[in-house]
Amino acid sequence: MRVIFIGDVMGEIGQTMLTTYLPKLKSKYRPQLTIVNGENIASGKGITRPLYKLILQAGADVVTMGNHTFDKQEIFEFIDEAKKLVRPANYPAATTPGQGYTLVKINQVVVGVINLQGRVFINPIDDPFAKADELVKQLQDKCDLIFVDFHAETTSEKLAMAWYLDGRVAAVIGTHTHVQTNDARILPKGTAYLTDAGMTGPYNEILGMNKDRVIEKFRTNLPVRFETPKSGPGQLNGCYFELDEKTGRARKLQPFSINPDRPFLE
């Protein structure tokens, strides 16, 4: 099973990078499943119905989210009917709309896509490790492969989740911190791991936000309104991996980056 994952799409530049390069990446890698994190696509925070559709039209099969899932009020109008949209599964089940996982069938292979959110240095919700146990147990007889987007702040929490799930899921890919890490590997029991896939959005800014505003915040420690630029050079980050449909384990993991310093190569 060939899979592409695209890291946090941010703002209008991220939208342009996604619609421009995802079709080219799909032509190059020929993935059978494409997953895109879309929690920042609406001006850096949240998602709207038109932007959810834009991600699908660009070529995604599943859209994962994160801590900004509910930042746009509009999401409450469509999240329950958006069957390809997955918000963090460890939001309180009794009070949170939407779904924490989805199943995708490709030919005769069923892939479970789970979204979880960390609790360290981020708005705490339910225990992601307990929820991971619950969902893996629930899905293991229904799925040939399980993919986890773990949206978390710290490397240690992401590593802990990967080692905890090693051998039980095919891949644990981190999102949220917006800088692609150089630690892609396949763990001993067969789980592909990357601390952060990186972001898709502005290139000459700071984590997708206007760099002058961020610098001002650090220099003055006064309230500053962060903004996502609408023009300028962009970047797209993500990874490609190959999963063994019979064993449910990973065989290959390859991060990729597209930006002015690393142009796309056919």
Rank of each mutant, 00 (worst) to 15 (best):
69 T>Y: 04
56 L>W: 06
53 K>G: 05
128 P>K: 04
123 N>Y: 11
39 E>R: 07
108 Q>K: 13
59 G>F: 11
125 I>Q: 08
136 V>Y: 01
112 G>W: 06
102 T>K: 01
120 V>I: 15
46 G>L: 13
70 F>A: 00
94 A>Y: 10
106 I>V: 15
142 K>S: 12
102 T>A: 07
91 Y>V: 14
68 H>S: 02
128 P>L: 06
95 T>R: 10
64 T>M: 11
102 T>W: 06
131 K>A: 08
60 A>W: 11
49 R>H: 15
58 A>Y: 00
51 L>W: 05
71 D>S: 13
36 V>C: 07
100 G>K: 07
38 G>M: 10
72 K>E: 10
104 V>N: 02
113 V>C: 11
84 K>T: 15
63 V>H: 08
124 P>S: 04
100 G>L: 09
98 G>M: 10
57 Q>A: 14
43 S>K: 15
45 K>H: 12
56 L>M: 11
105 K>L: 07
46 G>C: 10
138 Q>L: 10
36 V>R: 05
127 D>E: 08
117 Q>S: 13
139 L>W: 01
88 P>I: 13
124 P>C: 03
70 F>G: 00
63 V>P: 14
80 D>H: 10
37 N>W: 03
138 Q>F: 12
49 R>L: 15
57 Q>V: 09
116 L>I: 09
142 K>L: 10
131 K>H: 11
115 N>F: 01
143 C>P: 02
108 Q>G: 03
96 T>Q: 01
88 P>D: 01
127 D>H: 07
88 P>H: 04
49 R>V: 15
71 D>E: 12
139 L>E: 05
117 Q>G: 11
129 F>W: 01
45 K>Y: 14
135 L>E: 02
55 I>Y: 03
103 L>M: 02
63 V>N: 02
132 A>C: 06
105 K>E: 14
91 Y>W: 03
36 V>K: 00
62 V>R: 04
116 L>K: 07
61 D>I: 12
129 F>G: 01
105 K>R: 15
141 D>R: 01
104 V>W: 13
132 A>W: 03
98 G>Q: 05
82 A>F: 11
76 F>W: 08
102 T>H: 03
80 D>K: 13
113 V>T: 07
82 A>H: 08
141 D>I: 02
128 P>S: 06
121 F>D: 01
142 K>M: 05
65 M>T: 06
75 I>W: 01
75 I>H: 03
127 D>W: 10
98 G>N: 03
142 K>V: 14
109 V>C: 14
